[in-house]
């Protein structure tokens, strides 16, 4: 395991930013950390990066307790915060050299690493530019290169694509894919789930400081099908079809408009199969049978809406 978090809790005066959070990230995994604004992503990541003391709980990185061995752990993690500043009187290469020095890397070795990292983040042509002349996206990429200077195994990236235009987001995603092939373990946060889905191997959804769902991308998507919607189009015999469907215990809500019946079923794929089979056996002319693929966003919304309702009630 690259990262083990046990019962992590962080309380700021009255707000519970992180609430008994547990998670595990195996080596080589790209773990997407998703949650709404204020869900506690940044707080969790700052604690893991050793920048914030938790109220309680334990964090192990590569088997090391981060509160007992902070400097050793810092050699193994690269951290990119959501907001950061740059020194405006430094050139790009000097910026890398400065952080290299802070990580104990000097001279020729540092220059070589800088060259290869600038190539990775596509900033080689800006080598001698002053850092404050870079665009937002470039600064973000430079910050990523900075977090890689000491070749850490574990990367903590807090919304690396925030504030970027679609094109820059794609570029950032390409770079992150390259990190995956380099064998890095990555914890990456975002409040946009689909953005992470194609990049990540696993996903955890955090809401009000609690991990409400976690698993591989496939598992999370699967969950969505289960409470899915089915759109059925019939050529005729609409009323009869509605009657048959109403009798089935698996079918929940039902609506029909001009030959299109929408039903909500509980249960997985077998239920859909059974519904279709019943209709066909009763000689209903089914034109199309379409289990609506619940978008990741919908999953996210359904998983997080309960707690926001609670908040509103309070």
């Amino acid at each position: 395991m690259m990262l083990v978090v046990e019962n992590l809790t962080k309380k700021f005066k009255k707000t519970m930013a992180v609430d008994r959070l547990c998670m595990e990230i195996p080596r080589g995994e790209i773990y997407g950390f998703v949650g709404a604004n204020g869900a506690g992503k940044t707080t969790t990541m700052r604690i893991i990066a050793g920048l914030l003391a938790p109220t309680s709980g334990k964090v192990y990185i590569d088997g090391l307790n981060i509160f007992r061995d902070p400097l050793k752990v810092k050699g193994r993690i690269g951290y990119m915060p959501d907001f950061f500043g740059v020194y405006n009187d430094l050139k790009v290469s000097e910026y890398m050299e400065f952080y290299g020095g802070l990580q104990g890397i000097y001279g020729e070795k540092c220059r070589e690493l800088t060259d290869s990292l600038l190539e990775l983040v596509r900033l080689t042509h800006k080598r001698d530019a002053y850092v404050d002349t870079l665009s937002r996206g470039m600064k973000q990429r430079l910050c990523l290169a900075r977090s890689l200077i000491h070749d850490p195994d574990f990367l903590i990236l807090d919304e690396p694509a925030s504030g970027l235009d679609p094109r820059a987001r794609v570029e950032m995603k390409e770079i992150l894919k390259e990190l995956r092939t380099m064998g890095k373990t990555v914890l990456i946060s975002s409040h946009i789930l689909p953005e992470l889905a194609e990049l990540c191997t696993s996903i955890g959804i955090i809401d009000s400081g609690r991990l409400v769902a976690s698993g591989s991308v496939a598992e999370i998507t699967e969950k969505m099908y289960q409470s899915g919607l089915i759109k059925i189009k019939v050529a005729e015999k609409e009323e009869e079809a509605v009657k048959i469907l109403m009798e089935m215990p698996e079918v929940g809500e039902l609506s029909s408009v001009a030959g299109v019946i929408e039903i909500k079923v509980s249960g997985g794929e077998e239920t859909s199969v059974r519904v279709l089979k019943t209709l066909v056996e009763n000689e209903i002319p089914v034109v199309s049978f379409h289990p609506e693929e619940c978008s990741l966003e919908a999953v996210f919304m359904s998983l997080t809406e309960r707690s926001s309702e609670n908040e509103n009630n309070q």
Binding site: A49, G50, L51, L71, K74, G75, I77, Y79, P81, F83, F84, G85, V86, Y87, Y99, L102, Q103, G104, C143, R146, H150
Partner: peptide, 14 residues
């Protein structure tokens, strides 16, 4: 204030 302190604190420099 410049938001560069934390970038220093996450390094191995004590």
């Amino acid at each position: 204030e410049r938001q560069t302190l934390e970038l220093m604190l996450v390094t191995q420099t004590p």
